[in-house]
Design a protein around this nucleic acid. Structure first.
Lengths: 212, 212, 212, 212
DNA sequence: GATGAATGAGCGTTCATTCAT
DNA sequence: AATGAATGAACGCTCATTCAT
């Protein structure tokens, strides 16, 4: 087939690349495997991406864009703190079910074959959420809704730590097994129940004084 | 030199292998680098380990053993809940400073691409702590010290999630950069302050009602 | 654009191909570079030439035609031996300055890895000049103008050898550098001086007894 | 076979590499062909040479060393000018018969895929002979043996040009065919006769006044 | 009849694994 | 029983060639 790649074929390359990188990491992923799975030749990948690195970056961008969008629902409109946290937790669980590979991809980045790239990516990926979460916490502190002695950065950090572990638990093999071990298959599978527990723990952790 | 490898030479192979795997990941690690750093020949590694995979697993075992031991101090003796948590946090930070490579190895496991193996490892690694933490939480709930509506498994899970993210933050490139982004270099470096914040958040999260 | 390639477009393909082959050699030359420089598509080149090899041969033919024409001026009319040699040397230098790529192409032929083809080309290219030069030398010998003991063929050969090395020196990287090494940049750049020296050496070599 | 390569196997790699580079040029030569012809694995070549470039350089060094040695006989002892030239011509012809591939290799260099490398190599290869020949000519001029108006550099250049063309004629397909065309198979094959003619032309060219 | 993106064999290079010593 | 050089499959990448438009 020598027709120009359709949009969907191009998208398929990224999709298959995400799966491959998510499963095997940057070094472990093979360009020829990606090409084969996407049903295209190796060569054509190089028409769209200068090299493996650039394809990897495109996969990251795609993943992050998806993740951002999935979660951005949660921050919208005039929600109070418990509503916002609940929304974030729920959206995360939905996104995990829809596209676990994007979260697995994200987890691969954190394994970081290459220190410089890893740091750079950390900056790109983490800064927006860090800023947003810190602002929310600061505001809540000013309003006297939560523990005033908590460092806003640390609070945001702990909160996001729990969110990361949540999506890991619902997208990565190891973390999912770990979830089962800790919570039993029943609780682990019952996402509603899990999100209740999670929201409760977080609000308590932040020292939230209101009702929810 | 044709004498059998001494115990310490064998241990050195694992030590250097852990460093290499921790730094470069499974794929990136080079057998010849490990051999050179351990001062042995490449060939002899294959006398002790069938292949790279098996050496990697031995490194994981070593890492887990170290981690278990490092943290087991904390659970001992008659400590109350805040003391125990504080001890765990502090031990973790000490171990991270001493041997970040073991924590990095741990993180590598979570990337595993062989699902069965990964699950098996998760069982081996996570069950003891899961059991211990659940027991502690249940007891504390029975004594009315913490939130009774929290599922003990979920509580233990959230607690350990935070612990994992803590040691990741002090041992892995990505997570350390992330820590800096969230908390700024000052708080990130001041481990005492960080452990205070962490203990506070956890106790609040568990709904601890006492003083600490 | 779906109109048949104009003559000038076809000529441009060869022109650009000669430049590319001359600069990068057969293997190093890129069809897509040639196509781009000629302002045509890659595909159309395959309408006119079966493959890279055939395009290369067309470039050789073009180059040889140019060289023949460039140098044929020199042999014309009633010149005496020194005048003819001087004319050949000067024409060669002029042609080198105008179109070094054709001389570089010529040099590429001499590298040919297909022995039969190479011999065939040698026949086509060398015979006319060989015949002409031999005739001139024989005539000069009969007239007693030059060394009678010189084999006419060998004399023509040495003369043409010097001519080939001259145009190599003014068209090919290696030979030009070599010229600089031997003669210094001053003499190498002063083509007039060089042609004087060259004519002198050749006439002496042939045992020319007259004035010039 | 996993024994260390013997000296002769190592030499064979270079030998086969010279043949491959001589036949196909730098770009056209294939590492796997060289390995196969030398009866070794591809990998082992990289134990001895960092990359293709380094192997190529080694081939050049080997070729030049051979050529230098072959020709250095000629310069030795107290020979007068005709003797020295005769010796150079004869040695060249002998070397061409023994090892045409080294001369073919040399010719490949002059084709120069890569301008920078080509210039560098020109310097390395040509400078020694250029210096030596210039010195000989200058001395002969001071002694009044040859044409005083000849630029020493140009004289050395013309002389070496004829030498290069001579070895090309006896080692490269194209030039050999050309030799046949100019001189006929009889003269071309009768090396003795050819060297007589060559010496005669050179001495005449230099304006040598003595007997020979 | 021209286009230019897709193809895929083949390149240089690496490194886990083997085995003669 | 350890050594360390040799092996060769597999990688990322290129580019002459093809063919749907």
């Amino acid at each position: 087939m020598l027709k120009k790649l359709t949009e969907s074929q191009q998208a398929l390359i990224i999709d298959k690349a995400v799966l491959e990188f998510a499963e095997k990491g940057y070094k472990g992923a093979g360009l020829s495997t990606i090409a084969k799975n996407a049903g295209v030749s190796v060569g054509v990948i190089y028409k769209y991406y200068a090299d493996k690195e650039e394809l990897f970056r495109a996969c990251i961008s795609k993943s992050i864009a998806y993740l951002d969008e999935a979660i951005s629902y949660a921050g919208r409109e005039g929600k109070d703190l418990p509503e916002m946290i609940r929304a974030l937790v729920d959206q995360t669980l939905i996104a995990c079910r829809e596209r676990p590979e994007y979260f697995r991809m994200y987890h691969q980045i954190t394994t970081g074959d290459d220190a410089e790239r890893t740091k750079e990516l950390a900056g790109i990926i983490e800064k927006p959420a860090a800023k947003a979460y810190k602002a929310v916490i600061k505001k809540a502190q000013e309003e006297g809704l939560i523990d005033g002695e908590l460092d806003a950065g640390a609070g945001a950090f702990f909160f996001d730590n729990l969110m990361m572990m949540l999506h890991n638990a619902y997208s990565c093999t190891y973390y999912n097994e770990r979830l089962n071990i800790y919570c039993g298959k029943r609780l682990a599978a019952g996402e509603k129940k899990m999100s209740d527990q999670m929201v409760r723990f977080i609000l308590n952790g932040l020292g939230y004084k209101g009702k929810y």
